Every structure is written in C-alpha cells, then in structure tokens.
Amino acid sequence: MKKLILGALLAVSASLAAAHEYQAGKLLIGHPWARATAPGATVAGVFLTLDNSGGDAADKLVAVATPAAERAELHSMSMDNGVMKMRPVPAIDVPAKARQALAPGGLHIMLTGLKQPLKEGASIPLTLTFEQAGPVQVQVKVEALGASAPAGPKH
C-alpha cells in the first residue's frame, strides 16, 4: 500500500514539474520555451501561452526583460506575398475568458544580443510585465534546435 501511494505521489509530482506553469493574477502562463541556438547566433524567439479563461477582465503583456540578452521585445510575424515580416508590437492583448498563444510563426518574444548560445536542457529567466497583473518571473526551458513545440505533455 505504501509503495502504491508513493508511486502515485511521484507521478503527480512529475506531472506538476512537467506542467511548467506560472500564475500572474488571473493569468496562467503555460510552458515558456525557446529553441536551442547555433553557435554564434545572437537572436532567439520565446514562446508560451497566456490563459485568461478564468479572468473577467482583459489584460495586456506590455514588457519583457531577461539578463540572457541585451534586448527582449514583443514581436509579431506574418507572411506578406511570400515574404516573412517580423515587427515589434507595443503590447500583446490577452482577452478576458480567452487564451493567447505566442508561438512560432506568430506572436512571440524576440531576444536580441544573446550573451551566450541557448543550449538544449538549460533554462533562462524572463520577466513578463502585464498591464493589470504586474510583473512575474518565469523560467524559459530551452528545447531542441529544430523544435516546433515544447517537449512533453500538452499544456
């Protein structure tokens, strides 16, 4: 019986650790991640989900910062007549009772002037600042170089 209970506790603990989620007010920040970078690369994208489905009021992600890079900015990416366009945006809306994804090919956080390459398995600190919920520090997990989504269970 003790082994069964211990096994169940370990499974729950591993599941929570894999969840890699953070709370900022009513916002749930899901699995911040980035791709590993090649040697000499000076830029990287950070991706995550912002879940405000439990919130009655909209919020905005208004700033990002990390000691791992000279600059961190909010960006959008789009295709225009076959040309990829990446642009800084002043804020990212997080509507009430909705979820906003920052993902490859769309909204994301752009790190420029990386102080060292991002290595798979490492993590870097990132501070997200929201208009209503305020600042929250998260750890960005570095995934494989060609990752298209975070490893592990869906969040």
Rank of each mutant, 00 (worst) to 15 (best):
M1R: 08
K2A: 09
K2Y: 04
I5N: 04
A8T: 11
L10G: 06
L10C: 05
A11Y: 03
A11R: 02
A11T: 11
S13V: 10
A14G: 09
A19L: 14
A19W: 15
Q23I: 13
A24S: 12
A24H: 04
A24V: 05
K26W: 11
L28T: 15
G30P: 02
P32R: 09
R35E: 11
A36H: 03
A36N: 11
T37F: 10
A38C: 05
P39E: 12
P39V: 10
A41V: 07
A41Q: 15
A41D: 15
A41T: 12
V43N: 13
A44H: 04
A44S: 14
G45E: 11
G45D: 10
G45W: 05
G45Y: 12
G45K: 04
V46D: 04
F47D: 07
L48Y: 05
L50V: 07
L50M: 07
L50C: 08
N52K: 06
N52P: 07
N52T: 05
S53Y: 13
S53T: 15
D59V: 01
K60T: 12
K60F: 15
A63C: 04
A65L: 00
A69M: 00
A69K: 01
E70T: 09
R71F: 01
A72G: 09
A72V: 00
L74F: 03
H75D: 01
M79S: 10
M79D: 11
D80L: 14
N81I: 00
G82M: 01
G82L: 01
V83T: 08
M84L: 14
M84V: 12
K85S: 14
K85L: 15
M86D: 03
R87C: 02
P90W: 04
I92K: 12
V94S: 05
P95I: 08
K97L: 11
A98C: 00
L102F: 07
L102Y: 08
A103R: 14
P104G: 07
G106N: 04
L107F: 13
L107G: 06
H108D: 07
H108C: 11
H108Y: 12
I109C: 08
T112K: 06
T112H: 01
L114N: 04
K115G: 00
Q116T: 06
Q116W: 00
P117C: 01
P117G: 05
L118D: 03
G121H: 08
S123V: 01
I124W: 02
L128P: 09
F130I: 09
E131Y: 09
P135G: 13
Q137V: 10
V138A: 02
Q139L: 13
V140C: 08
V140E: 10
K141Y: 03
V142F: 11
E143Y: 02
L145Q: 14
G146S: 12
A149N: 12
A151H: 09
A151M: 08
A151Y: 02
P153E: 05
K154S: 15
H155V: 15
H155M: 15
